[in-house]
Design a protein around this nucleic acid. Sequence first.
RNA 1: UCCUCAGUAGCUCAAUGGUAGAGCAUUCGGCUGUUAACCGAAGGGUUGUAGGUUCGAGUCCUACCUGAGGAGCCA
Length: 439
Amino acid sequence: MSATEYQRIRIAECAAHDGKKVEIAGWLYNLRRSGKICFPQVRDGSGVIQCTALKNTLPEELFEGLKHLTQESSVIVRGKLRAEARAPGGYEMEIEDATIVQKVPEEQPYPITPKDHGIEFLMDHRHLWLRSRRQHAVLGIRHEVIRAVRDYFDNNGFTLVDTPIFTPAACEGTTTLFEVNYFDEEKVFLTQSGQLYNEATAAAFGKVYTFGPTFRAEKSKTRRHLTEFWMVEPEMAYATLEDVKRVAEELICFVTGRVLERRKEELAVLERDVSKLQAIQAPFPRISYDEAVERLKKKGSEIEWGGDFGGTDETLLSEDFDRPVIVDRFPTAIKAFYFQPAPDRPDVVLGADVIAPEGYGEIVGGGQRIHDLDLLLKRLEEHQLPREAFEWYIDLRRYGTVPHAGFGMGIERFVTWMCGIDHLRETIAFPRMLYRTRP
RNA sequence: UCCUCAGUAGCUCAAUGGUAGAGCAUUCGGCUGUUAACCGAAGGGUUGUAGGUUCGAGUCCUACCUGAGGAGCCA
């Protein structure tokens, strides 16, 4: 029997090849064995399939080789595919031939066993942990989220214009930045937001977005923080706070719908309560910061008007709603210099945050930017920011300035929410956190 | 930076101040439908590090190291 009569397929395509002779190239996920029959489970990155190997139909060398395969050994199996109710996944291959590409040595077995492991051990073995079913599901959903985000903007007239990662100065003057030696003399910083550059490209293209990594040197050590994370930031010319709220709402509904539609299996692996995601429909409730503070006080929070929400406050707020809640008009004092003040109330700005349900916290933050030259200059001074570094940004108010607005959405927080998991670190292949930069 | 908790076999954990143990993983034996397979056996230990108290410390005390969760700050 030559190998050529078997068609190479991926496990995800099994349904289209029922009853056919196929070849699957992958890794041994798990193995159960009896005296004269064994059940190797093979994964190939697209799924997991159970195979059967029978002693009395295979050459002894092949049967013994399969029976003693170690976890994560690389193997190519060939045989006939059939629907089989007893097999997890619904399809099964009866092995007729196999090539063991590499057997993981018994004296140094694969470290991640099917039993429980602690988080330190798993994080140290992140390069291998990615092979597990659960991690595979999380990263599959991440991929879908990113694809849907890009589809949404691409289909709605936005142009992707990426912004630099090396930046000459603090964008916002608020958070701590990573400093990098740029050749011999100059110091530059890793970007904390592409927003200021987006304002320039929005004046060139009308509607733009940037999608890339973002760096924050905050010494935060919680389940909601990474030092390196991915953010999508749209920016629109001739737009207001109302446009920000509408676009954020549409985006969130579109992406959630896509995940529900295309990632049922992954959500099932994660045992995600999909009814919680099905509830994500427009319109989202909209409340003002003033009202949010009142609600929080009634719920026992110690927040006072003028303070920013803590993690607990966001959870308390989200408890009142079955879908994301939009909070707008924050105190001017706690927001970055570029926020447009409300025309009727200069003590609040035209900014909005979207807070996810189930305690997943802030997933979107943005608003309308200052378009008036004199006001911008005044704010830069109030925030004691070096005007020289912002000359190009000020230029945008000199040459055809218009009301404009945009927001940022943190991808990892969004994916954490979609997955219903409790820590951000599992939503990126190799998380960078305070005290962890390996592997 | 601060607060809290934890560190025992490769992994997950147990052990009243008195002989360091179990499950998983690995090896050997058994089983033709297993579903984190099961049954029997074997090998596997400087109890994070350094001091201290005690007749005796995995257990109590001190310092340090490492990790986790949280606060502040943020998406």
